[in-house]
Computed example of a mutant assay.
Amino acid sequence: MNRAPEYVSYARMDELHELQRPRSDARGELNFILLSHVKELLFRAVTDDLDTARHALAGDDVADACLALSRAARTQRVLVACWESMNGMSADEFVAFRHVLNDASGVQSFAYRTLEFVMGNRPPRQVEAAYREGHPLVRAELARPSVYDEALRYLARRGFAVPADCVTRPPEEQHEPDPRIEEVWLEIYRHPDRYRDAHRLAECLIEVAYQFSHWRATHLLVVERMLGGKSGTGGSDGAAWLRTVNEHRFFPELWTFRTRL
């Protein structure tokens, strides 16, 4: 038996290319599955970098945290490009195989949910669902502070006026916008030369948040182009639901303090 080339055996490429199994003969379905797989893997890559940043912040290593955050933002740009690739499919091409998806929906992705939890979006309804029937990776994430929680803890250790209740809150509870945290970021941006590390951290965090919002906005546009006003798969409200989600911002005080700067 011929041995597979090292590139194939190391990354198990032969198995990877066996995973795409369309349920129809429609031309666009294979591309849809391939891009769905790519997005899932990229979710994991971003999560891994955010986890690295989180551990670095816990050790007061801002340089390594910012390196990991910057790497995550680069990968997020590739995620946005995935929507651009899928956008090349016409509405009639998508309709030709949409029925075979049954109730499958991207909102069921445990990799995506884990990423949202790592970034700090932990609404009670999603937390309850994760504890009840979520994937082990999603449930495990709820036991850890988010990357934003760790950023606030780092600032508190550096002497900034971060309220105690913002750093002692149980990790499964979502961080809510707090004007006291807004004051902390405002102080940092008013004196960037004095607080160089904190300012750099803030810029890296806001880029990650920006790229996530960019991904959501592009998702909305692609869905509107594909489905118009139809309901989404898996019983979601399609574009209407995505418009609501688009209003959410990660690391909220990093957005709101700017009005006062």
Score class of each variant (00 low, 15 high):
residue 17 H to R: 14
residue 30 L to K: 05
residue 43 F to C: 14
residue 94 F to V: 10
residue 49 D to R: 15
residue 54 R to C: 08
residue 35 L to W: 08
residue 60 D to V: 04
residue 13 M to F: 11
residue 29 E to I: 01
residue 80 V to Q: 03
residue 102 N to S: 10
residue 13 M to W: 10
residue 72 A to M: 03
residue 30 L to Q: 07
residue 30 L to P: 00
residue 60 D to W: 04
residue 47 T to N: 14
residue 28 G to M: 01
residue 63 A to C: 05
residue 31 N to E: 05
residue 39 K to Q: 15
residue 15 E to N: 11
residue 106 G to M: 07
residue 40 E to P: 10
residue 91 A to C: 05
residue 25 D to F: 08
residue 41 L to V: 13
residue 29 E to W: 00
residue 43 F to G: 11
residue 28 G to F: 00
residue 26 A to K: 04
residue 42 L to E: 15
residue 84 E to C: 02
residue 63 A to F: 06
residue 35 L to N: 12
residue 82 C to L: 06
residue 30 L to I: 09
residue 27 R to F: 06
residue 101 L to H: 03
residue 97 F to T: 07
residue 5 P to T: 09
residue 75 T to Q: 06
residue 95 V to E: 07
residue 16 L to Q: 10
residue 100 V to L: 00
residue 47 T to E: 15
residue 53 A to V: 09
residue 19 L to S: 13
residue 73 A to R: 05
residue 10 Y to W: 13
residue 20 Q to C: 11
residue 18 E to Y: 12
residue 70 S to N: 10
residue 86 M to E: 04
residue 49 D to M: 12
residue 32 F to I: 03
residue 87 N to S: 14
residue 97 F to M: 07
residue 80 V to F: 03
residue 23 R to I: 06
residue 96 A to W: 00
residue 66 C to G: 04
residue 71 R to T: 09
residue 75 T to E: 03
residue 104 A to S: 15
residue 106 G to Y: 09
residue 65 A to K: 08
residue 88 G to F: 03
residue 73 A to C: 01
residue 96 A to T: 00
residue 24 S to W: 02
residue 12 R to M: 10
residue 91 A to P: 04
residue 30 L to M: 09
residue 19 L to Y: 09
residue 76 Q to W: 00
residue 99 H to V: 05
residue 12 R to N: 13
residue 105 S to Y: 03
residue 55 H to I: 07
residue 73 A to Q: 02
residue 77 R to E: 08
residue 87 N to R: 13
residue 21 R to K: 15
residue 28 G to C: 03
residue 57 L to H: 05
residue 22 P to S: 07
residue 69 L to G: 06
residue 43 F to Y: 15
residue 22 P to K: 08
residue 43 F to P: 13
residue 28 G to W: 00
residue 82 C to F: 03
residue 42 L to C: 11
residue 58 A to T: 04
residue 14 D to N: 13
residue 73 A to I: 00
residue 101 L to E: 04
residue 15 E to G: 10
residue 54 R to H: 09
residue 71 R to C: 04
residue 31 N to F: 05
residue 52 T to S: 12
residue 80 V to W: 03
residue 34 L to P: 03
residue 44 R to T: 15
residue 5 P to K: 08
residue 93 E to N: 01
residue 105 S to L: 02
residue 82 C to K: 02
residue 72 A to H: 01
residue 52 T to V: 09
residue 47 T to G: 15
residue 98 R to W: 05
residue 79 L to S: 01
residue 47 T to Y: 15
residue 16 L to M: 12
residue 68 A to E: 03
residue 32 F to G: 01
residue 98 R to Q: 09
residue 105 S to T: 09
residue 68 A to C: 01
residue 15 E to K: 11
residue 10 Y to I: 14
residue 95 V to G: 04
residue 53 A to D: 09
residue 17 H to E: 12
residue 94 F to W: 07
residue 29 E to A: 01
residue 102 N to P: 01
residue 79 L to F: 00
residue 7 Y to E: 13
residue 51 D to I: 09
residue 48 D to S: 13
residue 37 H to N: 14
